[in-house]
Amino acid sequence: MSLLDNLTKKFSVDKNTVTLSVRVTNEENAVLQEIADVVGCNRQDVIYQLIQDYAIPAWQQMKIESDLDAIDPEDYSGTSYFLLNTNKTNSIIDHNIILEKGIAATFEDDYINKMNRIKKDDVVFLYESGSGIVAYGIANGQNIDEQHPEKINHKSMRYQTLSDFTLLKKPLSARDIKNILSKDIPFAQTLSKVKEGSLLYSHISNL
């Protein structure tokens, strides 16, 4: 279905929204206005639908491809460091549960097995999309499967309790993380192992 077709459906915007300012050229603004005039909506509606039709599907595909990337053979000697996405882009409830309970958690059958990679005494950094690392803790190595995941609109949930759980006063941004590690990190991935994570841990511990 085309952009114009979707716009004519008179979609309703989610109540949980934020205001977003976008700078465009005069020519681009004219195009947006013409589309809006033809359909009978406003420019904000056009931009919103563009995000729904193109940006969100592209992000979802990027996340799938990232999660399917080959994983290096695990080294179970010593401490490993992991970056866990709090799933805020999919569910603010998931994000809040993780931070309020001080846990590392993954959701749904396609992702819960990733928790099995985390062993006792590994360090888990909790990454909030759009903000950065917001908390961290030490894994206890004991995976727990939530008995009633349907209460939070999931089919499955697996988690570990984090000891020495610490909420950062200010998130450590994606840019700062890259600078500390001198490499790119797959932030969209559900769970990723951070090579040289000790550098990141040392930095965060001293904040």
Rank of each mutant, 00 (worst) to 15 (best):
S66T: 11
L68E: 06
L68V: 01
L68H: 09
D69L: 15
D69W: 08
A70V: 10
A70R: 12
I71K: 13
D72A: 15
P73L: 13
Y76Q: 07
Y76W: 10
S77K: 12
G78N: 06
T79L: 11
T79E: 15
T79R: 15
T79W: 06
T79H: 08
S80P: 02
S80I: 04
Y81T: 14
L84M: 14
N85P: 10
T86H: 05
N87K: 15
N87V: 01
T89G: 12
N90E: 14
I92G: 12
I92V: 14
H95F: 11
H95W: 09
N96Y: 09
N96S: 14
L99S: 05
L99K: 09
K101F: 05
G102E: 06
A104I: 02
A104P: 09
T106C: 00
F107W: 09
F107T: 01
F107Q: 00
F107R: 02
E108V: 05
E108I: 04
D110F: 00
Y111C: 00
K114E: 04
R117F: 04
I118H: 06
K119A: 08
K119Q: 14
K120H: 13
K120G: 08
D121C: 12
V123N: 02
V123E: 00
V123T: 12
V124A: 03
F125Y: 05
L126S: 06
Y127A: 07
E128Y: 03
E128Q: 09
G130E: 12
G130D: 01
I133N: 05
I133F: 06
Y136W: 10
Y136P: 01
G137N: 10
A139P: 11
N140R: 14
N140V: 06
Q142R: 08
D145I: 12
Q147L: 13
Q147W: 02
P149N: 06
E150S: 15
E150P: 05
N153L: 12
N153I: 14
H154N: 12
H154M: 01
K155T: 15
S156R: 11
M157T: 05
R158F: 03
R158E: 04
R158K: 15
